[in-house]
Write a protein that binds this DNA or RNA. Structure first.
Lengths: 193, 193
DNA sequence: TTTTTATTCAACAGTGTGTTGATTTACCAA
DNA sequence: TTGGTAAATCAACACACTGTTGAATAAAAA
């Protein structure tokens, strides 16, 4: 059970969990714009009006799921980064992040898969970018190039995660973290040796 | 006028152009799922039934726009890549691509901006990835690492393009192509010098 | 157990959808 | 320029999903 759920009425917990997992399941087979409140509530066998007690519409439900995840990520990312040992501490951060993604593989597959949500990528990118810009400032890089580098890197990360999803999380989070880190720092040179 | 439009009835050209630009305009302010056929046709001052003569729904309209663009990109990307001079020929390809993006800045801003379309990124990534996997095979890289590298690079490219959009295409396509190429090949090492 | 509160259910008006057939308007080729 | 062709308009239609309501029921918390 998540932190934000502990004090909830059990019925609310059940309802929200049903809607959460139901939406994830439906997103595996169709776009969000093709998922109606009617269809979702029928799918999870809840009365349609129950949905409206908790959420305004499908978008707000999606939003609340994403924000919940973001809180988790922010927690993980808030660990200190050691600028004197960028390579190792960045690797550590990627480890932790990917491990958490794996724990949430159901919803992550939905949000970043073929019928995924654009907003989620934006949110994800934003909290990751905050982080690297912090580092960049500490290292005194030009703001302009840094903005492009962090955009490149962390959108690239999303690409790696999507590739990971496509192989159904075959490799270990450690392995994925390792190649991500190498690509970020050495680019193609990383595979040329 | 695009190649696919030359033989069309002028009325069809006008209608499609109105819907194309109208959708792009509406996508600058709201998500696709919040754009109805009714709203779009009112916005561009067309009868709603006219829309249905040409498209099934908003999604199909979006699809046809994207596919049109993809044809353009495919054209550009089909230029030969010189494996013996990867750096230069990749740079050339990025030049051409970014120049074309700039020509289509209106629709590109819509498709990759805050209310952009997930599918479009997928399509874009796919044609770019086809290309790099071709190169990778010629250079005899391991398939697995290569899949991750190309996912990283070209999703990263999308990130750079989004950053470019956010600065309202301030820099030249040549400059953006140059930093993209450097990030792709040297990663962070490119800004460490 | 009692009180509180979430869920269910039926019903409602409202809005967008997708289609149709008749009419008007614009285009294109002869 | 004209006549045939085809696109755009318009009004009307059944249909499906929406968002909200109030009363009845069920489950949880105290």
């Amino acid at each position: 059970m998540r932190m934000s759920e502990v004090k909830m009425d059990r019925r609310i917990r059940k309802t929200k969990s049903l809607l959460w997992h139901g939406l994830a399941a439906l997103m595996m087979e169709r776009d969000i714009q093709d998922i109606s409140v009617k269809r979702l509530t029928e799918y999870v066998d809840l009365n349609r009006s129950t949905f409206y007690i908790h959420y305004k519409d499908i978008n707000q439900l999606l939003d609340s799921i994403e924000n919940e995840l973001m809180e988790e990520f922010r927690e993980i990312i808030s660990h200190n980064i050691d600028i004197s040992n960028l390579y190792e501490s960045n690797l550590q951060l990627l480890h932790d992040l990917y491990r958490d993604l794996l724990l949430n593989r159901e919803i992550i597959s939905a949000l970043l898969g073929p019928h995924g949500d654009f907003q989620f990528i934006k949110k994800l990118k934003q909290i990751l970018t905050e982080r690297i810009e912090e580092i960049g400032k500490a290292l005194n890089y030009s703001e302009e190039v840094l903005a492009y580098y962090s955009a490149f890197c962390f959108t690239g990360c999303v690409g790696i995660i999507q590739q990971w999803i496509e192989t159904d999380f075959e490799q270990s989070p450690e392995h994925i973290a390792d190649i991500t880190n190498r690509f970020m720092i050495h680019g193609m040179d990383a595979i040329l040796h």
